[in-house]
Design a protein around this nucleic acid. Structure first.
Lengths: 203, 203
DNA sequence: GAACTATTTTGAACGCTGTTCACATTTCTA
DNA sequence: TAGAAATGTGAACAGCGTTCAAAATAGTTC
């Protein structure tokens, strides 16, 4: 019976994470309630605060899972493309598909801000940085003059641009924007980037 | 004395809007409290719900003001640029400067979602659409083959891309990203777009 | 296995939130 | 000036995340 305590603790933690993940996926971060999570996980309200520091920490755990799944999908996508142009297109499309398939979990990644003076832990930031390394590969081939630091910055810029397009479209924040043509428009945008990158020269 | 009632009502409404705006500017949307607003405006808590349907409606009013100020700044910027390339650069830079100068009010524009089934009123969506018309002007010169509808979509795409870059940078969400070089990097990105747009041809 | 300690579980209670509403006050009409 | 209509007021309400003393369980020691 040795270690039954840690086993139960780990079990409760995963049950809470999965319950929170399901709730976010179903109703979004705004409709997430501590009481709902603990009910779904089959424990008392207070147990959540034994397993995690607070609700924010639990959400962070869900976001880490989402980030990891997104990373895996993009890794898989990268391996199926032939040249660098195709890789860029696939990365953007994979990102869009992920966001469209699981909008609430994806949106929680960006909606969420650690409240008050609490800082986002380092392991989470590193998980985010890993995503960018997917882009630096094909980008290095397209911008051979850039050094490692410049590549990271440029990769972040391009990711942010694609993210902006995807997020503003999926939010349907601006009127008169057909979501149906989003794939087409995003693909055109990647073409635009690929056409412009060589002209950018060594900058 | 005729009309003293409507006069007082209008006065209270603007006082509430200005109090809310000051609170958001100082502490962000997350730290906005109905009790703080009414205290600052010098009225009872319940008076807020006489002047506005709810807190969300009041926030929307603040956002409308912010949107209008942003529009005016971008209009002013447009008139100072010579060619279309310069206009695009100035639009992006003006947007970045606005976001950097008033981060909380700017961020509230995107952080805010009308809760529940309440819909964002049409006049607000139109106000947002007006922003895009700033881009369609110079864009039409760079992509002469596009019709009016395509221009709107393309303008939204480019705005979303710039917005993504600005927002992810200012949030400092991703590690290792120097905010100091943001102006430079954004300008490079506009160069990239301007270099790629002609190559995009008639699409 | 009994006695004792350490940890975990529990749910009532706390403080804070947006919102409501019966009542007092003010403004308009006749 | 009297009555009607609109507005101002703040205590009260329901819901929220979080805490905490007490109960229950797991681990340890003889």
């Amino acid at each position: 019976m040795r270690g039954k305590r840690v086993e139960k603790r780990e079990d409760l933690r995963t049950r809470l994470i999965e319950a929170a993940q399901a709730r976010i996926a179903a109703g979004g971060l705004a409709n997430l309630r501590a009481r709902d999570i603990t009910t779904d996980a089959g424990c008392a309200l207070g147990a959540l605060y034994n397993a995690f520091a607070d609700l924010d920490t639990l959400i962070l755990e869900v976001n880490a899972r989402t980030l990891r799944r997104l990373y895996e999908e993009m890794t898989a996508a990268l391996s199926t493309a032939g040249n660098h142009h195709g890789q860029m297109h696939l990365l953007a499309q994979t990102y869009l598909n992920f966001a469209r398939r699981e909008p609430n979990l994806w949106w929680a990644l960006f909606q969420f801000h650690m409240s008050a003076q609490k800082q986002v832990p380092e392991w989470f930031s590193l998980e985010q940085a890993k995503l960018l390394t997917q882009i630096t590969g094909p980008l290095a081939a397209l911008q051979p003059k850039l050094n490692a630091t410049q590549l990271i910055v440029r990769a972040r810029t391009l990711f942010a641009a694609v993210h902006g397009i995807v997020s503003i479209s999926l939010e349907q924040r601006f009127v008169g924007v057909p979501v149906e043509t989003l794939d087409e428009e995003l693909s055109r945008f990647i073409d635009l980037l690929l056409a412009g990158l060589p002209a950018l020269g060594e900058n």
